[in-house]
Amino acid sequence: MPASVQPESILKDLARLWVDLGQEEAATAVGNGVLRACAMTLVIATGESDDPQSLGETIADLMPQHPSRVIVLRVSASAEDALESRVFAQCWKPFGRRQQICCEQVEIIASPSRFPDLPKLILGLTVPDLPVVLWLRGVVVGEHPEFRQLLGLPDKMIVDSSRFDDPASGLDNVRMLHRRGWNVADLEWTRLTPWRESVAHMFDDQRNRQAFGDIQRARISHSGAVPPVSAHYLRAWLIRALPRQVELSFQSVPAESGSRIRGIALDGRGFSAAASLEGNCAVVTVNRQMQRSAFPAQSECELLREELSIIGVDTIFRGCLE
């Protein structure tokens, strides 16, 4: 490992960064100093083809809610023996406050030949006593067996199975990680939260719960030719809760683009309920009574925010994977 990319040297660079930031801030007219914020170590493994700008924007948006030491691990396809690092700060000033808040970011670029060095390097860079989360963004573990050593580090691993061309492969990948005992989260499952919440709301009313046993059919509508992974998760989740006799089906509906859930319908004797999307609103109808509510934006950052707020095991997701 070249001297310049040892954990020790990167930590020194980080320390120097804080001194510089403090001095810059002290030189301003206000001079309130810089507040250092850190609630976890977030390791992001990303491929060379991954758009660095969009990743940078996601990290910047994430930091105010989940301030972290971010370690971006960029996989280089280069045949050359490369291992480089640089450090910088993500800073923002909350509205109405005079003090700047900053988080640390370390970027490491590694060629495949240097992958075996990465686990030790990352281990030396994690913030002590705080959770470590690994987000595999644009990196498939199976493609880089050396990466597996990294997987032992985090308290939680986040993947996005929708990045797979084929939903079945995406689902297999997540199940494989789960079977190996890792606390894995899939952003395809996170995308379901507003849908699942809409279904739960259908049964807030005691009278609707009384009709629960009468449900006979459940239909999941999706765009795209084949059901996305999220549709399979939704199906598994519904099966866990609904009566045994319910017939569950997928329905492909035309939509502008992408493969996504478009609606859920439950019906049976004297009971019908549906949730669908209309613009930015979720429309939930239970026995002809309708309510609209905001359907939260589901940017990558929003999904990450939700996942990073849950560091422990999501037993419901685990149950659906099994």
Partner: peptide, 24 residues
């Protein structure tokens, strides 16, 4: 056989869903 509904709402996910008021 009549389906026995669980006491609460079986779809509730306390880890991710916010609390919600009953009708009223």
């Amino acid at each position: 056989m009549l389906y026995q509904m669980p006491d609460g709402n079986p779809f509730v996910d306390p880890l991710r869903f916010g609390r919600r008021a009953p009708p009223g």
